[in-house]
Design a protein around this nucleic acid. Structure first.
Lengths: 119, 119
DNA sequence: TCTTTCCTACTACATATGTAGTATTTACGC
DNA sequence: GCGTAAATACTACATATGTAGTAGGAAAGA
């Protein structure tokens, strides 16, 4: 049962992974003002994340629930990357080639990564 | 006016980029049997691609239209990659790190890429 | 030409997603 | 204890996407 997260759901999860445990309000406040949605919008996303078993309620503070992640960032990233690579036929190499081509990645980045992964 | 393609739309485009010019039937036939959708489904996707200005009708053969791409694979890939990177905060380096971590990319791949981009 | 086949045009529909409003309940200060 | 502020629960709705059916017209064979 792989969990699929939408773009917005992922954003919420990122915040939750950072905070470890948070209320709807705290998460909403953590979103950049420019794109901060209505409180109930964040609430709706939490409801969906609960349904997807991506988060769960832990306790209550005042009359607000706190939530915590049920899935790791790593597992989600793995899935995202796999799906993305599938779009390109499953191979990472051409994607990285394109990253270099577009300047998203430099030779220095590559070397650093090589170093790091060698250890 | 950036063109957003869905997963399925992208698959159709891939085939069209390869064939250069093709009819709905030809594209449908080019899809792996396992996941080959109904003829009218492919037709619907073509209609949406037309709306999005991603393809256009060129001529008619028999009573079937032929289509050709209006956008390049490269421009679409660039967009896909950019959007994907945005999910991870816009930086490619952590994504590549994760590719290495998950074995999607090997040290040999990296070295080969380095070589290639150096020239 | 008549019939069969194939294609197009149009319509339909479920699910996912972004977005938020309304009604109801709960906790907290007074 | 009560009122008020804040949170929750529930509902709503538009757009995107995957998926395909039906009706009607055009091409091609008999």
């Amino acid at each position: 049962m792989p969990i699929n997260l939408s773009k917005f759901e992922l954003e919420i999860m990122e915040i939750l992974w950072k905070l470890r445990e948070a209320s709807v309000r705290e998460v909403q406040d953590a979103i950049q003002e420019r794109k901060r949605p209505a409180y109930t919008t964040v609430q709706t996303i939490f409801a969906r994340l609960e349904e997807k078993k991506a988060v769960r309620r832990t306790r209550k503070i005042g009359n607000a629930f706190l939530f915590e992640p049920l899935i790791t960032r790593k597992s989600v990233y793995r899935r995202l990357i796999d799906e993305f690579l599938d779009l390109f036929g499953g191979s990472a190499e051409p994607v990285v080639a394109r990253l270099l081509e577009t300047g998203k990645l430099t030779l220095e980045d590559l070397k650093a990564l090589e170093e790091r992964s060698r250890k």
